[in-house]
Amino acid sequence: MHPTRRAALALPLLAAPGLALAQERFPSRPIRLVVGFPPGGGSDLVARPIAQRMGELLGQPVAVENRGGANGNLGLDAVAKAPADGYVFGHVNNAVIGVNPLLYRNLPFDPVRELEALAAVTIGGLFLMVPAALPANTLAEFVALARAQPGRLNFASAGPGSITHLAFELFRRQAGVELEVVHYRGSAPALQDMLGGRAQLMIDGINLAKAQVDSGRVKALAFLNAERHPLMPQVPTAREQGLERLVIPGWQGFVVRAGTPAPVAEALERAVRAALEDPGVQETFRNQAILTRFAGRAEFARMIREETERWRPIVTEMGLTLD
């Protein structure tokens, strides 16, 4: 069946019958999905396949707009200031929506009052990685190397206050090591500098880690979650290697402007779910080693609240604040 015909058949299931938005059926024009990180990073790899399939299902393009900077805050600010009509929604991960409100003293928006949960789409965790040429093949060997030359090794961060930065701060404290932190505007440029030899440590998700490990360009020394990742079972957890409290779950999802009419939010939620469950999208994510798990608006809202409360004592203990 022609894609346009499929979209036309799918649209009545995803749209909100009887909804009057300027006497128009939703959606009647293109939609923007704002991603608060540069193209090519883990957030972008999740957002783009879903956006493309949503466009096909809804009968209107869903264009990804990358607004990198301030650890995702620039992107969320754009969503918070958009009209509450569903034509702009935003990508988030657990750090951007769950941790940033604890870190930033002067956020230009109120994430609790101006944003609403739409859907979660992936689950995962973080890997601690080093360049293939670095003489360390286990977490213990890397810790010994870092302790032998304090302050001389560099950690490539995806941005100040990012989940990778917070993970590093937890690792640094628990392992008793000192590295220089170099912040980048996302995972992709951080990876390029580590591959170029300007950094010796990086922490990121499996969709970035597995491809680099499989290519032989980096070594994954530890998975920072409670159990080994099913797609990289050869990598031991940090907990297995003696860092009991270095457990950092992860997820990605979408939010919409608070006050968006319920039928519109429901239509977007259904479109996200249908796109995520599409066999082509599932194959794309499998090839990128991304594990999917859908959670609707109510469950995702609970996940966000729980993430904020989980990090609150940790951020307080670290004494980390950002402007």
Rank of each mutant, 00 (worst) to 15 (best):
E266A: 15
L291D: 13
A20D: 15
N154S: 11
G125T: 10
G41I: 05
P131I: 06
V92M: 10
G196I: 05
R270N: 12
T122F: 01
P160F: 11
T292D: 15
F109Y: 13
D278I: 07
A84D: 04
G319V: 09
A146H: 06
R198C: 04
E116Y: 03
P12K: 14
A156I: 09
L9E: 14
E244T: 06
A148G: 08
R302A: 13
P150S: 07
V235C: 08
Y104D: 13
L134H: 09
D323K: 04
P236D: 13
Y104N: 14
P233T: 14
G196M: 03
E266K: 13
L128P: 00
L166P: 04
A295F: 09
P279T: 08
L179T: 14
A146M: 07
L58Y: 01
L231A: 15
Q192H: 09
P236W: 07
R152T: 14
A51W: 00
A220P: 03
N207G: 07
G205S: 12
S187R: 03
P150Y: 06
R172N: 05
A95W: 03
A158N: 15
G205Q: 10
F223W: 09
M318I: 11
Q288G: 02
L170W: 00
G159C: 11
A295P: 01
V96H: 01
S157W: 06
F142Y: 14
V88M: 04
Y104P: 05
S43W: 02
A167I: 11
F127P: 02
R5A: 14
P38C: 01
V92D: 02
A146C: 09
E116S: 14
R302S: 12
N66E: 06
P30Y: 03
E65T: 05
M303Y: 01
V62K: 00
G151H: 10
A262M: 02
R305K: 07
E317V: 04
I314H: 07
L118E: 04
